[in-house]
């Protein structure tokens, strides 16, 4: 018999608002993303100075993961390689690619910077989350035109069924100029004492993604 999976927490960030499945809520005063994400960081007393060196995509994914995993230690629960991170978005790292491109466009004012260049890959956000939470498990980053709950649910279920993951952080982390949104899900196996906040299926995932903020 197939084990059933549930969503034990989620974190949704959009339109200067953040909400989690554990009732954390924050309505930012700032509308521009860089200001909003900083005020959110301060509001939740994150205390991780490396945050300020990250690009916008990584800041968004990192902060969503902070709230998703608040009061959890997945390393303790599932071992160092038991938790997978499976993310997707539409714009890959284009938000930072544009900044980097502008830094090399003019040869008389040519400043390619390694600290910007390293963020011109979308999977860096998974690296930042992995470093913070000491997670060594399965990693994959996909690009889709829009959020695709069908693919996400099917792929993650397959990873569980084949013991590739015992726990999974999955979702959508999108950053494109002024537009941003993140939804992360913490997916775990259902047990007698552990049945989370909703079954991990396409409908529930889509309902959470579509919450109005």
């Amino acid at each position: 018999m197939k084990e059933s999976l549930h969503i034990s927490n989620y974190c949704l960030i959009r339109n200067s608002h953040l909400i989690t499945g554990q009732d954390h809520f924050f309505a930012g005063k700032e509308t521009a993303f860089p200001d909003f994400i900083k005020e959110t960081y301060r509001h939740f007393n994150i205390g991780y100075p490396k945050f300020f060196k990250m690009d916008n995509l990584s800041k968004l994914g990192f902060l969503a993961a902070e709230l998703l995993l608040k009061d959890r230690d997945l390393n303790l629960d599932y071992g160092k390689d038991g938790t997978g991170i499976i993310l997707a978005n539409a714009s890959a790292s284009l938000d930072t690619d544009r900044i980097y491109q502008a830094s090399i466009a003019d040869r008389s004012n040519y400043f390619p910077s390694p600290s910007v260049f390293v963020y011109t890959l979308p999977n860096i956000v998974m690296g930042e989350i992995s470093i913070r939470h000491k997670l060594f498990g399965e990693n994959a980053f996909f690009i889709k035109q829009t959020f695709d709950p069908v693919f996400m649910v099917e792929y993650v279920k397959h990873l569980f069924e084949n013991q590739i993951v015992a726990c999974c952080i999955t979702g959508w982390v999108e950053m494109d100029s002024e537009r941003y949104e993140a939804v992360l899900f913490l997916v775990e196996k259902t047990g007698p004492l552990n049945n989370g906040i909703a079954i991990f299926d396409v409908r529930n995932v889509d309902d959470i993604y579509c919450l109005k903020l």
Binding site: K80, I85, G127, S130, I164
Partner: peptide, 22 residues
């Protein structure tokens, strides 16, 4: 197969090769 993370540094390889070993 499997893909993993070093959980160590975003641009420098891990010193003990832990992620690749896993």
């Amino acid at each position: 197969g499997f893909s993993s993370n070093d959980a160590n540094h975003i641009s420098g390889p891990s010193r003990n090769g832990e992620g690749l070993y896993i």
